[in-house]
Design a protein around this nucleic acid. Structure first.
Lengths: 213, 213
DNA sequence: ACAGTGACTAAACTAATGTTCAGTCCACAA
DNA sequence: TTGTGGACTGAACATTAGTTTAGTCACTGT
């Protein structure tokens, strides 16, 4: 080999972070050894501690990069809305758009997120809280606009909506094994989107105000 | 201590399994050492290998017991139904009943299940598949009874229903941190049940056939 | 040219973790 | 009483995995 002129995928530090993200996503933090990561990144073990102090430090760096990647979607704010129109769709649409823009790295991202949520990391909660605030706000808005039925449980609705929104993220491996393809494949994902909004709207919106089919 | 007359909680083997279930649920398989388990079970390390051959063997034994516990709910079959009545409720009701009957061990059960899904174990998939079959059947039945709207996506509906059903199971730690109490607390769980069935029915059932509020 | 800085390596180190094994104790059958 | 078997112990063992460190190399500023 030549003189190791900063690998095609960046320097050691960069490669370590992106490789670790992928491996953590695949096998979980405890399921990967520092040697695995080093080998896959084509660097020596020592470099991990050189750059990040410890394996835990590497995890932090990975988390940071992950969150930075996600910020865009996370700090989304609802734009001006025409009253009477369900704003939940805007949120879903933003997420969809974000996903399609990151399609190449999406599988890793999804898996990493899945594990973070299930491992109950602090930043996993931060992301959850952020999601919750958005959905919650959207529900409040709908309520203020008078499109929510009287019987609707204002406490549970946001959570149920999050279940529907996060369900594919958390359970996609099982979707895949059940129907043979990922729920994130473009056509399926689009269908899911329609099914989801239809379920929400027709279940939640008062019949009198219900939009034309 | 006397002569170690089979601890109040059964013999070593029994205690190891139930303790391991709890610890695995709390910290994950990799997050617990055999010494942790042995100490908490008040036996020596060696006993684990004596009975189960390896830590992995212990996991298998724990899985077996867990599945056996779950069998009742898993092998539930819908009873005779009055047509026109949404059978999804029957399933949800069965699950609710099962949970209330196992209320004492429920937190561990929920956590263990959560982790199993995350780890994509084969039996985790088996349980998922079983759930899916039940919900799927229920949907087919509703369709045959003509209570499903024409626009409803027959492929996604079962999954969306599972999301709603499993959501609290998977995300309860976050619910707890968000509203201060577990979604499984009796009153909240009951409210969730109502919110869920209401969301499903009014979103899914044709308006013409919709049951009296 | 020279010292310094920082990325990077590879072997050595250390703590931990799963496993093995020789041996104890007790129940039960011959 | 003897002895056989299984539950159980705990120290020793082997391996693994994270960390430390001495040292190389290339580049930078003086």
């Amino acid at each position: 080999m030549a003189k190791k002129p900063v690998n095609e995928a960046g320097d050691g530090r960069t490669r370590l972070i992106s490789t670790a993200l992928r491996l953590f996503a695949e096998k979980g933090f405890d399921g990967v050894t520092v040697r695995d990561i080093a080998t896959a990144s084509d660097v020596s073990v020592g470099l991990i501690n050189h750059h990040f102090g410890s394996k835990e430090g590497l995890r932090t760096a990975v988390d940071d990069q992950f969150i930075r990647q996600f910020e865009e979607a996370l700090f989304w704010e609802p734009k001006k809305q025409e009253p009477g129109r369900a704003t939940t769709e805007d949120f879903a649409a933003t997420v969809d758009e974000w996903i399609s823009r990151h399609q190449d790295t999406w599988p890793d991202t999804a898996n990493y997120f899945r594990r973070a949520l299930l491992e109950e990391s602090d930043w996993g909660f931060a992301i959850f809280a952020r999601f919750y605030a958005i959905v919650q706000k959207s529900v409040t808005k709908m309520d203020a606009d008078g499109v929510l039925g009287a019987q609707v449980d204002r406490l549970w609705l946001p959570f149920l909506m999050m279940y529907l929104e996060l369900g594919t993220l958390l359970l996609d491996p099982y979707i895949k094994r059940t129907i043979g393809k990922s729920g994130f494949e473009t056509d399926l994902w689009r269908r899911r989107h329609r099914a989801y909004t239809d379920l929400i709207r027709r279940g939640v919106v008062k019949r009198a105000v219900e939009p034309k089919a």
